[in-house]
Design a protein around this nucleic acid. Structure first.
Length: 306
RNA sequence: GGCGACGUGGCGAAGAGGCUUAACGCGACGGUCUGCAAAACCGUUACUCACCGGUUCGAAUCCGGUCGUCGCCU
């Protein structure tokens, strides 16, 4: 078997996933079962975005090997395909070490891509074509692109959300590169034992946690971190769509008071959590740990390691 | 007690006689998702404009009264 046992920990933002993963890994290690953590978070892959993405500090990692973090500079494009490739490689190495892998994160697509084996890297792609299509969208609008997609890839056009520019551009990119209707490959699945567990928090409590974390991030120097990042990188980079940076810059520019920025940060996180809940709700096989998460997670991990 | 302003959905806020069986923003709720996913996108959310009466073919929009809020004055 080339893939190690995989424990997937899903859940919305600020729900305690990271801490739980490390606790489980530590306990397991204590029982003689090595475990490593792979973060599945689309913003923690960027170096330098530490406070704002609530990235685990080296100290908090407590000696448990961590992956999926600090993979690229903020100006480097990074997509699910890149994440899947990295996870694949990492999983291979973990298997060789005979350890268990814990995949934790709030980026549902990343979780799904690796734990269900979405052949995301096999899809046709060409950055140049994409760039051209994006420019065209900006110049001409969405309609012409949708028309073209309907002509070139009618099935895809009928199945997708044609009101979403990003999706239309990507579909057209695939159709252009593939020279017609590209086949949509089925998920390959995960080549090894997998268990999905999920963390859920009562709405009011969750709100408090989100608010508490936002305040803590600003107290910990989010504004300074954002300032340093902006001095070095283009603020328009996708990496900086991570919640908190825009708000921190607004404080720096005198557009928002620190208090208002925190409120906005909380608001965005709340909305984000909502989307995550929707995504995970549709994900089958998640064992939502409501009573005693640590115990449930540990039990699931032990069962996998057996 | 007098004078003035105001009273539109959970909040903010348009509308100032027919184009409104009431914009928009936020929130809330539901949803989409196979290369930007902390992103992008979609849907639902006031049979009703404080209340009562009147004018008018027609009123959230005009008039009168009542209640309420705020401000100023005594």
């Amino acid at each position: 078997m080339t893939r190690p046992p995989l424990l997937v920990i899903a859940g919305a933002t600020a729900t305690g996933k990271t801490g739980l993963a490390i606790d489980v890994a530590e306990r397991l290690t204590g029982e003689g079962i090595a475990a490593e953590v792979i973060s599945a978070d689309s913003r923690q892959v960027y170096r330098g975005l530490d406070i704002g993405t609530a990235k685990v500090s080296a100290a908090d990692q407590r000696g448990i090997p961590h992956h999926g973090i600090d993979l690229v500079e903020p100006d480097q494009p990074f997509t699910v395909a890149d994440f899947a490739a990295h996870a694949d490689e990492t999983l291979g190495a973990i298997a060789e070490r005979g350890a268990l892998a814990i995949l934790v994160g709030g980026t549902g697509l990343y979780l799904r891509a690796v734990a269900r084996g979405l052949p995301v890297g096999e899809l046709p792609s060409d950055p140049a074509v994409r760039a051209r299509l994006e420019a065209e969208f900006l110049a001409v609008g969405l309609e012409p692109l949708v028309e073209r997609l309907r002509a070139v890839a009618p099935q895809r056009a009928a199945a997708m959300d044609t009101a979403n520019p990003r999706r239309v551009v990507r579909a057209l990119e695939m159709a252009t590169v593939a020279g017609g209707e590209p086949p949509v490959p089925d998920p390959r699945g995960y080549d090894g034992p997998v268990a999905w567990i999920g963390l859920e928090v009562e709405p009011e409590t969750h709100r408090e946690w989100i608010a508490g974390r936002a305040n803590a991030q600003f107290d910990a120097g989010l504004i300074e971190e954002a300032k340093a990042l902006r001095e070095r990188w283009d603020p328009a980079l996708p990496a900086f769509s991570a919640i908190g940076y825009r708000e921190a810059w607004a404080v720096l520019d005198g557009e928002l008071t620190r208090e208002a920025a925190i409120a906005e940060d909380i608001r965005r996180n709340q909305a984000f959590a909502k989307r995550q809940r929707t995504w995970f709700r549709a994900e089958p096989d998640i064992d939502w740990l409501r009573d005693d998460p640590p115990a449930g997670a540990l039990a699931a991990a032990r069962a996998l390691a057996r």
